[in-house]
C-alpha cells in the first residue's frame, strides 16, 4: 500500500466522523508518513509499519473489546444454545469442561444464562449497517466465538451465526450438533459425534473431512459441498444448488442423498452398488447411475439438473 492508498482507505474507515475531524485525522497521518519518509524510510515501509487504517479507525472510535472466557461443568449441561451474528464460530476440543470465549464491546453484548442444564448465549448488537462498512470499524466484529467441547459432554449443541465462517474440528461427544450460518464457509474436520450433525449455510462452501456420526445433513445454496471420509450410522444427505457435490469415501447405514441443481455430482461411495435401491436423475448431463433400480437394503438418491452424475462404488 502506498501513501495515497493508505489515506484513501483511512478516509473510508472513518467516513462517519464529522468532516472537519475527518480532515484533521487524515492530515495528521499524512504528516506522520511524510515525516517517516523524511527520516529515511521508503514510502511503502512508512505505511507498512503503521497500524492498518482499520486498526486506526477502531482505536480512534474508542471501541474497547472485552474478552470473556467462561467454563461450565460438562456433566451439568445437556443443551448449549448459541446465537451470534456477524461473528465467526469455532468449535474446538476441550479436555475438561465446556468453554466459551467471546468478545463484547460497546455495541455488542452477550446475554449468558445457564440454568436447568441449558447454557444460552445470545449476542445483542446495536451495530448499524454503517458500522460494518470497510470491515466494520476494524476487526471488532470479526473476533471469533469459541466453543470448547469436552468428550464428556452429552447433549445437543445449537449454533446460529451469520455472514461468517463456522468451523468444527477435532471434537468428540455424544449427542447432536445443529449449526447455521449464511454467506460463509463451513468446515467439519475429524469429528466423532454419536448423533446428528445438521449444517446450513448459503453462498459459501461446505467442507467435511473424516467425520463419523449418526446422521449428517448439510444444506447449502450457491456453494459447493465437499465430503471426504464420512461415515454415518444412518443417513448422509448433501444438498446444494448452483454448486457441485463432491464425495470421496462416504458411507451410510441406511440412506445417501446427494442433490444439486446446476452442479455436477461425483466421487466414490465406499460400498457395493447392490446394497442400494438407486434413484437418480439429471436433465442435462451424463449419468453413471441407473435411473431407478430397486432391490437394495439402503437408499441412494442422486439428482441434479444441468450437471453430470459420476458416482463410483468402491466396497472395502
Amino acid at each position: 500500500m502506498d501513501k495515497t492508498e493508505f489515506l484513501a482507505e483511512l478516509r473510508t474507515q472513518i467516513a462517519t466522523r464529522a468532516p472537519e475531524e475527518l480532515r484533521r485525522t487524515v492530515s495528521y497521518f499524512e504528516e506522520i508518513i511524510d515525516d517517516r519518509i523524511e527520516d529515511g524510510m521508503s514510502e511503502t515501509e512508512a505505511v507498512a509499519t503503521l497500524e492498518t487504517p482499520a486498526q486506526i479507525a477502531e482505536s480512534l472510535a474508542g471501541i474497547q473489546t472485552a474478552h470473556n472466557p467462561n467454563s461450565y461443568d460438562a456433566a451439568e449441561l445437556h443443551t448449549i444454545n448459541i446465537r451470534d451474528l456477524n461473528c465467526p464460530v469455532f468449535i474446538v476440543p476441550r479436555s475438561d469442561s465446556v468453554y466459551i470465549e467471546y468478545h463484547s464491546h460497546e455495541k455488542k453484548r452477550y446475554d449468558v444464562d445457564c440454568s436447568n442444564g441449558v447454557l444460552d448465549v445470545m449476542a445483542v448488537s446495536s451495530m448499524k449497517w454503517y458500522d460494518y462498512i470497510g470491515f466494520g470499524r476494524g476487526n471488532t466484529t470479526y473476533r471469533p466465538f469459541v466453543l470448547g467441547v469436552p468428550e464428556s459432554f452429552c447433549g445437543r449443541i445449537n449454533i446460529v451465526t451469520s455472514n461468517c465462517d463456522a468451523s468444527v474440528s477435532d471434537v468428540k461427544f455424544s449427542g447432536g450438533l445443529n449449526i447455521k450460518t449464511s454467506n460463509a464457509k463451513m468446515t467439519f474436520r475429524n469429528l466423532k459425534i454419536s448423533g446428528e450433525i445438521s449444517a446450513h449455510t448459503s453462498n459459501g462452501k461446505v467442507v467435511a473431512q473424516f467425520v463419523e456420526c449418526g446422521l449428517f445433513d448439510a444444506e447449502n445454496s450457491n456453494g459447493r459441498i465437499e465430503a471426504t471420509h464420512i461415515s454415518c450410522d444412518t443417513e448422509l444427505s448433501l444438498a446444494t444448488s448452483n454448486g457441485r457435490v463432491e464425495i470421496q469415501h462416504i458411507k451410510a447405514g441406511k440412506r445417501i442423498a446427494l442433490h444439486s441443481s446446476n452442479g455436477r455430482i461425483y466421487g466414490v461411495i465406499d460400498d457395493n452398488m447392490r446394497e442400494f435401491s438407486v434413484r437418480s436423475h439429471t436433465s442435462n448431463g451424463s449419468n453413471s447411475l441407473p435411473g431407478d433400480m430397486p432391490g437394495g437394503n439402503k437408499d441412494l438418491e442422486v439428482s441434479t439438473s444441468n450437471g453430470s452424475i459420476e458416482i463410483r462404488f468402491a466396497p472395502n
Binding site: Y28, L50, E51, L60
Partner: peptide, 8 residues
Amino acid sequence: ISESTLYP
C-alpha cells in the same frame, strides 16, 4: 505509543 494513541 502508537500514532493512533497519540492523536486523541
